[in-house]
């Protein structure tokens, strides 16, 4: 399959991208292309114009500033997975990025493109939620920040305005004593997440001081499983307590399809959630 025809524009800067978005009707931003081009080839997307933002230098790279590590929207999954900085400061993100697709997909796909597409079976959205990331947007009205929990609005829908560009995502640097883990039940055909569990826990003196858990794949937007982890703070995160809280997972209208029903996805999420928390705990203690 081949895309239908479109006008092509290359933006040299964020401001130029915003200007083009404002001027061209029916335009789409093109970064790595791994969400957009397949849609265009299947003609599920037929934009009149494509704005290539792939060469905007300021949108790429990993940069730590104190307690925050910023990842540019154009940073590729492979770079994220291999980044020493991220493996130290936000290992959950690096681990999840390393489980996206396959190496060739990770060589092209970008953080911004991934979250802008907001595919519920994608690997990164739950990570953003689990660690409390902040998405930075730029538009004709200026720049703004959206918390990850507010960014994912619905199936394939985000808080991103059509006139805006994602510039970067800020991730809090993991506190000392933090362990994180991303576990994925991979779709055997597409490689996407049937269920992806992103967990982060912080231990101090053997006691949990913070815990978070979020899931890809089970609902239209990533599921922040506060109902599971809220009771963990103060505890020791022993296997019994993790098993006990994992059953508290509650998902309204779970996604289901020919490959995995909603009921099964929720069950998988309970198992993977517990295992991700246990793995995060072990890493925190280790």
């Amino acid at each position: 399959m081949v895309p239908s025809a479109f006008d092509f524009h290359r933006a040299g800067s964020v401001d130029e991208a915003i200007e083009l978005l404002g001027r061209l009707p029916d335009a789409k931003l093109l970064a790595g292309g791994h969400s957009l081009i397949p849609m265009m080839k299947l003609r599920l997307a037929q934009p009149g114009a494509v704005i290539d933002i792939g060469r905007i230098q300021e949108l790429s790279g990993v940069c730590r500033d104190g307690d925050v590590v910023s990842v540019g929207a154009l940073t590729r999954h492979g770079e994220i997975a291999a980044s020493e900085e991220l493996r130290a400061s936000c290992p959950l993100l690096a681990e999840a990025a390393g489980k996206i697709g396959d190496p060739a997909v990770r060589n092209r796909g970008t953080l911004g493109g991934n979250i802008a597409h907001a595919d519920p079976a994608s690997d990164l959205p739950a990570v953003l939620i689990a660690v409390g990331a902040v998405v930075h947007l730029a538009g004709p009205e200026g720049r703004r920040q959206v918390a990850a929990r507010d960014f994912f609005v619905d199936l394939l829908t985000t808080a991103l305005d059509p006139a805006e560009v994602i510039t970067r995502v800020d991730f809090p640097v993991a506190a000392p004593g933090t362990g994180q883990a991303y576990l994925k039940h991979e779709h055997p055909a597409s490689g996407y997440a049937v269920v992806g569990a992103a967990a982060s826990v912080t231990l101090s003196g053997g006691r949990c001081t913070a815990a978070s858990l979020a899931f890809n794949g089970i609902s239209a937007v990533p599921h922040a499983a506060d109902e599971v982890v809220s009771g963990l703070v103060g505890g020791t995160l022993d296997d019994a307590s993790l098993a006990s809280v994992s059953s508290l997972l509650s998902v309204r209208d779970p996604l289901g399809d020919v490959h995995a029903s909603g009921e099964y996805r929720v069950e998988l999420a309970r198992v993977y959630g517990r295992r991700a928390l246990a793995s995060a705990r072990d890493r925190a203690s280790g």
Partner: peptide, 27 residues
């Protein structure tokens, strides 16, 4: 294929493996 999943079109772009069916020539 047409979904970036078979890998038959893999080439190296600036040294990195890329599925050339999922990249525009202009990119």
């Amino acid at each position: 294929c047409e979904t970036s999943l078979c890998g038959a079109c893999t080439v190296l772009v600036d040294g990195a493996a890329v599925k050339s069916c999922t990249q525009l020539a202009v990119q």
